[in-house]
Nucleic acid binder design. Structure first.
Lengths: 305, 305
DNA sequence: TTTTGTCATAAGCAAAACTTATACTGAATC
DNA sequence: GATTCAGTATAAGTTTTGCTTATGACAAAA
C-alpha cells in the first residue's frame, strides 16, 4: 500500500465518481481505476460498489470502504503534519534569498511567495530584485542568492532551471487599433506597424525578436517609437494607441480595460512558436541545500505551472 | 512522500545503520540511500546526520528526524490497522477453500496457514487434501477450491501460479551408505544403486526423473526395490538402508537422525539443475476474487519464499 | 600510508505507473 | 427493442521510477 493509493482513494470517495476524481488528481481515469484496483487487491476487499455493476448511477463506498475512508483521511492528514513539523524544526529561522527579475514577473513572484508562505512558513524569505533576467542568473552563480525567479534561456551551464510557466510571444493592441477585431495576427502582416518596446538593455529577448521579424521579412529598426523601462508603462502606451507591442503570454492582461491580446500565427493560420519566454526557477546544480531542492520540487503541486 | 519511504526511514532510524537496514528490508544499500535522500529533499530537511561526515561512527537522527520518526511510526501503524479493519469488515465470515497436495508439502502447508491466520484472521480456511499435484490443479479448475497449494508444472493454461519455494532434486542416503561421506554425487555414478520411490500414480515427476536418468546413461527400471505411498515411509526406508531416493530440496531433513542429503552435480562438479520441483499457489486466472488475489499477493512478504 | 567501514554516486536494467485507445455494461432515449 | 449515452474496465505501448551492481569518497583504525 502506498500513500498515492490513499490519495486516489480519498479523491474517489469524496467525488463518488472515478472520472471526476481523476480530473481533480490530474491523472487519467484508467490510471486511477488501476490504482484503486491494486489497492482493493492488496486488501482483499472491494472498497467501492461500482456504478456499472448493480443498477446505480453513482459509485458507492462499501461498508469496508467507509471505514477505510476515515482511516485514509487520518493517515494523509498525519503525513502532511509530519512534513510540516519536520520543516518547522529543521528550517527554524532559516533564511532563503530569492532574486527576481523585476520588470516582468509580478504574477509569478506573488505565486512563489504564496507557495513559500504556505509550505515553508518558518523560512524567512529575502527578496532581491534585479533589472534583467541575466542579472538574476549571475547572482545565483555568485551565490548572492539561493534561488532566482527569472526568464529563460539559461546563460550558464552550472545552473539548473525548473520551468514554472511556459510563455510565447503575443501582440497587444489598443481597442481602437484597426486590427483589434481580428482573431489572430500573422507576423508578416505587422511590417508597417509602430512599436513600443522595453529598453534594449533591460530586455530579455530583444535581439531574438528582431531576428524573428527579419525572418518574417521586415525589421523593427526605426519603427520603435518609444522605449520604456517598465511593463506597466509599456502597457499604458499601447493602451493610448502610441503603438503596439510584443508581450509574453505569461501575463494576464484580461483586466486591462483598453487592451486586446492577439495570438501570433503564420500566414497560413498555423500556430506560431518561435521566441519562447518561459519563466523558471534557477538554482545552482551543485551545493543545493535540501531546502532549495524541496522548494523547487514542491512548486507545481500547489499553485504554479 | 510515499509509505515506502516511511518504511525505509523507520528501518534506518531503528538500526541507525544504512547497510543493516537495507538488509532487513531486502533491498540494496544504494536503493535505500536514494529513497531516504528523496524524502529529505521533499521535506527540505536532513533527517539523519550521516556517519561519514562529522566524526561519528554511527548514523544519528537529527532533531527534525527524531520527531519525524515518531510520526512515521504512527502513520505506518495506522496504515496497517486500516488494512486489518477493512479486512475484518469485508471478509467477515468469508470462507476460503484451500486444496493441498497431501503427500509432500507439510512445511509449506504450515507456513501458508500461519500467514492466512495472521493476515486474514477473519477468513475461515477449509483445507482439502488431494493425492497428487495434478488433482489439486483439477480441483481449482473445477472451482471446488479457491486456491491450491501444489507442485509445478502447471497442467492447465487457465491456471495461474505463484511460486512459493523453488526446489531441485536431491538424493538422500542412510548414514551407513558407503557414499554417505562424499560432499556431492554425480548422477551418472548412481547407475548401480537400488532405489525407493513414491508410487508412480502419486508421483509428481516420476517420468521426468526417469528421463533425466536416461540422459545420464542409465535407467531405474528394475532398480526400484520398493514403491511407497507417503514421504514419511520413503524416508524411513532410506533410513534403514533399503535403498536411496530422490527428494526435493524443499524439505528440511536436517532433523532426521540417520539421513544425509546430497546435492546432485555433473561429472565435472558443476551444479545439476534438471528436474525442478517448485511449490506454488495455484488459482484461476479469471474470476479471481479480491480475497484470492490478496492472499496470493501477500505471500512472500511474510514467511514464505 | 594502507586498510576498513560506511555511505554516496553512476549507469544500466527492470518494474511500476501513466497515457491513449477501445471494449464493456446497464440505463435512458427514440 | 435497437441505439445511444454515461461510467468504468481492459489492453497496448511509452515513460518514469526504483532497483541492482559497480565504483567512488571520506574518515577512522591499523
Amino acid at each position: 500500500m502506498e500513500l498515492r493509493q490513499l490519495r486516489y482513494f480519498v479523491a474517489v470517495a469524496e467525488e463518488l465518481h472515478f472520472s471526476k476524481a481523476a480530473q481533480r488528481l490530474y491523472v487519467s481515469q484508467p490510471a486511477l481505476s488501476q490504482q484503486i484496483g491494486l489497492l482493493e487487491n492488496e486488501i482483499g476487499v472491494e472498497l467501492f460498489i461500482r456504478a456499472s455493476r448493480q443498477h446505480l448511477r453513482k459509485v458507492e463506498l462499501s461498508e469496508a470502504g467507509q471505514h477505510f475512508f476515515q482511516a485514509a483521511q487520518k493517515i494523509l492528514q498525519l503525513s502532511q503534519q509530519a512534513i510540516e513539523q519536520a520543516r518547522e524544526i529543521g528550517l527554524h529561522q532559516q533564511v532563503l534569498h530569492v532574486g527576481v527579475y523585476k520588470t516582468a514577473l509580478r504574477e509569478r513572484i506573488v505565486e512563489l511567495l504564496q507557495v513559500l508562505n504556505r509550505d515553508f512558513p518558518n523560512v524567512e524569505v529575502k527578496l532581491v530584485e534585479f533589472p534583467t533576467p541575466q542579472n538574476v542568473q549571475e547572482a545565483v552563480l555568485a551565490e548572492q542568492i539561493d534561488l532566482g525567479l527569472t526568464l529563460l534561456p539559461l546563460h550558464y551551464a552550472e545552473l539548473n532551471a525548473k520551468v514554472i510557466k511556459k510563455g510565447s510571444l503575443r501582440v497587444i493592441l489598443s481597442q481602437q487599433h484597426p486590427r483589434a477585431l481580428e482573431v489572430s495576427l500573422s507576423l508578416a502582416s505587422l511590417w508597417d506597424e509602430r512599436w513600443v518596446e522595453i529598453t534594449r538593455s533591460l530586455h530579455p529577448v530583444y535581439d531574438e525578436i528582431e531576428q524573428m521579424c527579419q525572418l518574417a521579412g521586415f525589421s523593427r529598426v526605426g519603427k520603435i517609437v518609444q522605449e520604456v523601462s517598465s511593463l506597466e508603462l509599456l502597457i499604458s502606451l499601447v493602451e493610448v494607441g502610441r503603438g503596439i507591442a510584443f508581450i509574453s503570454s505569461a501575463y494576464d492582461l484580461s483586466k486591462e480595460p483598453n487592451i486586446v491580446v492577439k495570438e501570433l500565427v503564420h500566414a497560413d493560420d498555423s500556430p506560431f512558436v518561435s521566441v519562447a519566454i518561459d519563466s523558471a526557477l534557477v538554482y545552482l546544480g551543485k551545493n543545493g541545500s535540501p531546502l532549495i531542492r524541496a522548494v523547487v520540487g514542491g512548486i507545481g503541486e500547489g499553485m504554479l505551472v
